[in-house]
Amino acid sequence: MTEPLLSARGASVSYSGSPEPALRGADLDVFAGAAIGIVGESGSGKTTLGRALVGAVPLTSGEIRVGGRPWSAVRRGNPVRRSVQMIFQDPYASLNPMLTAHETVAEVCRTWDGLSRSAASHRAVELLQEVGLSGHTISRRPKQLSGGQCQRVGIARALACNPGVLVADEPTSALDASVQAQVLNLLLDLRESRGLALVLISHDLSVIEYLTTEALVMYRGCVVERGSTDMLLKQPRHPYTRALVDSIPGSQRSPQLVRNAVDPAAGCVFAARCPDMMPDCLANQPPLTGTAGGAHACLHPLGELKLPTPIPLRTVVSSA
């Protein structure tokens, strides 16, 4: 098997001042051309994992290796740093408001590739064209661009480093439906044309389903389930994954989340909200068990998904 471009082992992150770790022992391999989704609610550690993958957050324990070396050993200026790039949720806030789209991208070409001013400028035009921006648009500043256009500039800037892995943190959450479709199409195009591996962080399961082939489900800093995206959505084993799947608008089942009166710090991270909690769940956080195809961190995983019991959501005005 070939080496993964990025590989995390037991990656943990604690922020000072926060009572519990933001990320607890995540394992992940990103191979060339992979498309991996990370799902979970806010505060589940999705973004922390994403940031740790690009080396933007120091780990408290564990290791993330990029091109075979741990991030901590990769010095500034090492070309391996360029191989993992990130795009962000807020397309406006992630760009320098003083620079035009063209300057933003050209700056990266100049600093990283050591291109001359004119060569960098030329390269920036090419990159912006690749993401669908040309003409007058590229000499505009973020304020004069739409959200979707700003996101394209962010993508072009990431591409300027010629990365092998693109970590996309909620890239379309701030965008309207029709614009979201444009950005999703662009990400698909880039995967095909450049063989780019994609790590997509999103709370939107339809986006995850559309763009990724495997996925991790996170809850309170833990990876609670991983597997092929298809299986996760069709046959969730962890009760939290099932609650997420049931939350998709239009799903026939209501998500089952309860409030158990247990110490949230003890045992399984999901024990306090789990409808199927048993006494033994309170001992330890269960490790991820399973095969390469799919694993879950639950002592009492769900079997075959039972046929949904329809719960009428739509209230009908009685004609009486």
């Binding site: 739409s146 439906a177 029709s178 979201q180 479709a181 444009q182 999703l184 199409n185 698909l188 939107d204 339809s206 986006v207 389903e209 559309y210 763009l211 082939t213």
Partner: peptide, 23 residues
């Protein structure tokens, strides 16, 4: 129609979503 076709759930993986040109 375009709004409905732009939903990721409207397409199977790999097929491009329908987009609306312009703004």
């Amino acid at each position: 129609r375009a709004l409905l076709d732009a939903r990721p759930s409207a397409r199977a993986g790999g097929a491009r979503l329908t987009t609306i040109p312009g703004q």
